[in-house]
Amino acid sequence: MRIFGSSLARLDARAMAMPMIDRKTFLIPLALVALAGCAGTGTGKYPSLAIRDIERVQGTFEPVATEQLDVPRVEVTYSGSLQERLSALVGQAEEAHRVFTAAVPEAEQRASAANDAEIGSEAWASAQVALAGLDSARSEVAAALGDLDILHAAGAVQAEDVSAIDAARGKVIALVNIEDATLERLRDRVR
């Protein structure tokens, strides 16, 4: 037993006497061997990245004259001239906005009364009815904006001057933005 024990003691002493190999010392030669494997084992002939004959475009292209283009006409039905139609749509939006503005004080009163009310209570239901009335007036303004959008799209497709349509749309969009802000403010009160 003693012989076996002394052999182990000698092995431990030898192991302690040998310098420890740290990771860096071990990994550097390993990385060099891996890089050497990537280095030039090929023939040095790689495929060219130049355009091949099959990839070349052949033929000639003639530009089409704009007179020859067959752009389909977008049909927009309205009576009267474009200016008359724009005036009618802006007038429709402004009238609906007047109805909206007239209904706001009552809706504000009902929304304030429903501020702390429970969902389903009479005050909450009354506020919801008032907000629905405002939504109805706003939808009339939005309908006019939708018609203006159709006119704008039709004019743009036909490459016509749409500046008058844009001006009318700008007026109606401003009304819609005012109404949206009012509705958002009142809905926040009811919640």
Rank of each mutant, 00 (worst) to 15 (best):
R2M: 14
I3T: 10
F4V: 15
G5Y: 15
G5V: 13
S6Q: 12
A9R: 14
A9M: 12
A9I: 12
A9F: 09
R10E: 12
R10C: 14
D12R: 15
D12I: 09
M16T: 12
M16G: 15
A17T: 10
P19H: 10
D22G: 11
D22P: 07
K24S: 08
F26R: 08
I28C: 03
P29M: 09
L30H: 10
V33W: 11
V33C: 11
A34E: 07
L35T: 09
L35A: 11
A36R: 07
G37C: 08
G37P: 06
C38A: 12
C38Q: 09
C38G: 10
C38N: 07
A39R: 10
A39C: 10
A39S: 14
A39G: 15
G40S: 14
G40T: 13
Y46N: 05
Y46I: 12
P47I: 04
P47D: 03
S48G: 06
L49S: 13
A50C: 03
I51S: 05
R52I: 05
I54N: 13
E55V: 01
V57R: 06
G59E: 08
T60F: 06
V64S: 09
A65K: 05
T66R: 04
E67I: 07
E67N: 06
Q68R: 07
L69D: 00
L69P: 00
D70M: 08
D70T: 13
E75N: 08
V76A: 03
V76G: 02
T77P: 04
T77N: 11
G80P: 01
G80H: 00
E84P: 02
R85A: 15
R85F: 02
A88Q: 14
A88G: 09
A88K: 12
A88N: 15
L89K: 07
L89W: 01
V90W: 01
Q92E: 07
Q92V: 03
A96F: 00
V104E: 09
V104I: 05
P105F: 03
P105R: 03
A107Y: 02
Q109S: 13
Q109R: 14
R110S: 02
A111S: 13
A111E: 05
A114L: 01
A114Y: 00
A114V: 02
A114W: 00
N115E: 08
D116K: 13
A117Y: 00
I119Q: 14
S121F: 05
E122I: 05
E122D: 13
A123E: 15
S126N: 01
S126C: 00
A127P: 00
Q128R: 10
V129N: 03
A130L: 00
A130D: 02
L131K: 01
A132F: 00
L134E: 01
S136D: 11
A137Y: 05
A137N: 02
S139M: 07
A144Q: 03
D147P: 02
D147T: 06
D149I: 05
I150G: 03
I150Q: 07
L151R: 12
L151H: 05
H152G: 04
A153F: 09
A153G: 09
V157S: 14
Q158D: 14
Q158K: 12
A159S: 12
D161K: 12
V162L: 11
V162Y: 06
D166E: 15
D166T: 13
A167V: 04
A168G: 04
R169L: 02
V172N: 03
I173G: 03
I173K: 10
L175H: 02
T182W: 04
T182L: 07
L183R: 15
R185Y: 06
L186R: 11
D188S: 15
V190A: 10
R191H: 15
